[in-house]
Design a protein around this nucleic acid. Structure first.
Lengths: 239, 239
DNA sequence: ATCCTACCTCTTGCATACTAGTGGGTCAAG
DNA sequence: CTTGACCCACTAGTATGCAAGAGGTAGGAT
């Protein structure tokens, strides 16, 4: 009896490429599948099933799952199974705390950067992204809007010259993206997000570190407000 | 020809216990060996050699090494070998940036915690640690002093109720601890560290979030000042 | 009907074997 | 002496097989 595949292979990449470790590629596949809610919280994912699907042995799959458990995307119960992590309010608030701490530090550093050229470059880059977001909002293109939101925060972090900071922020953001992908009720939020992004950049442009930090802090607190609604709409995905 | 063991087994734990995954125990062993500079930066550590030493197969050792590469303690060069990471000024400053962002957020949260009881408990716990540190300083016991320093920062973070925050701070701190274990010229710093710790707690006690944040920030900047000296003393361990 | 037990199947953890790629050492040609 | 080709030892990456524990299920005793 042929079982349902766990992850739908994308047409552009039916298999794994040979120029990169299989474990690393599999990690990316499963991570994306979890973020996009293709793999649902609470769902069991067995090493054997995934190995068959990817056409490899259990070893690289297992190594990928270990990494995913490190970032809190799956939970491994020895001798019982591996499950996609469910959401919990506590864990999401924790992710927000970490993210806020880092992103506030990021904008503070940029705003106080004595090198005016770098600061200007950061401002220009982000203002361009904001302009694109306005277009996406006008087109009511939620997916594009969210991708540009990623770009905005990633671009800011990358101007610190600390690559791991950007990676951390992205990882913590991913937890929230999972929740957000439950349902796309972002459309009402375009305007608020846009004005918040603009406020952050305006403060950086003025070299006002405190103001930029406060703006970022408020922005993140606001974004996570949808947590008030979602657990009731999808209780089966929460602990 | 019997080779030199890579890691000296402690007398209290000559082997691995059976009640916990081997990979996890091995991870701890190697991490401690790297922090304590028993394994030196740049040194090659082979999966096979470690497996023989621990009396297990390559598999759990390999899984431990993957985790260690995640936290930047080792670097895996495919088909060439696994090496203990060397220091680099950039990476250490990056770790400081992350740590400062998180620890500033921690003291801010505690100082503004509306629950006075929790705040008081945090203050009491930390003041007790500071008292112990005074004793360690009087005895010129650098090792005890450093362990209490760990406790201090860990205790603060644990009062946020966000366990991953404490873990992150500990991980970033570990990079600096490696550097510090190169040489113990901390003795001259007892007084400065003590007064800085006291200033942080005093601000928290007063509920002065900004002051506590500034005190923590200054403390961390000061601690990392030994970076001015060490790379010249041990250039072989730096990139 | 209820409970208990034996068993069977599934899981992950670990051991072992094989593959492919890297780098050093040897030796011969120039 | 220098240079280059070859070989060999060793590396990490992957495949496969076995061990041990968890949990469901069938069937018998009560």
């Amino acid at each position: 009896m042929a079982k349902q595949p766990l992850i739908s292979m994308r047409p552009e990449s039916k298999g794994l490429s040979y120029d990169r470790p299989a474990a690393s590629q599999i990690f990316g596949f499963i991570r994306d599948a979890i973020i996009s809610m293709e793999l649902l919280p609470g769902q069991m994912i067995s090493e054997t099933a995934l190995a068959q699907q990817f056409g490899v042995s259990r070893t690289p799959v297992r190594e990928a799952l270990i990494q995913l458990s490190n970032i809190g995307f799956v939970e491994v119960w020895p001798q019982r199974g591996t499950y996609v992590s469910k959401f919990s309010i506590e864990k999401i608030l924790e992710a927000r705390f970490i993210r806020e701490a880092l992103e506030v530090a990021v904008v503070t550093q940029i705003a106080t950067n004595p090198d005016a050229a770098t600061r200007l470059e950061a401002v220009n880059t982000c203002e361009k992204i904001i302009a694109d977001q306005k277009t996406a909002a006008a087109d009511d293109d939620a997916l594009a809007f969210q991708k540009l939101d990623d770009n905005f925060h990633h671009a800011l972090a990358s101007f610190t010259q600390y690559p791991r900071v950007a990676a951390f922020i992205e990882a913590e953001k991913a937890h929230m993206d999972r929740v957000r992908n439950l349902s796309l009720h972002v459309s009402g939020q375009y305007k608020r997000v846009l004005s918040q992004h603009a406020a952050i950049i305006k403060a950086i442009k003025a070299g006002a570190a405190d103001k930029s930090a406060a703006a970022m802090s408020m922005h993140l607190k606001d974004v996570y407000n949808i947590l008030e609604l979602i657990p009731q709409e999808h209780p089966e995905y929460f602990i």
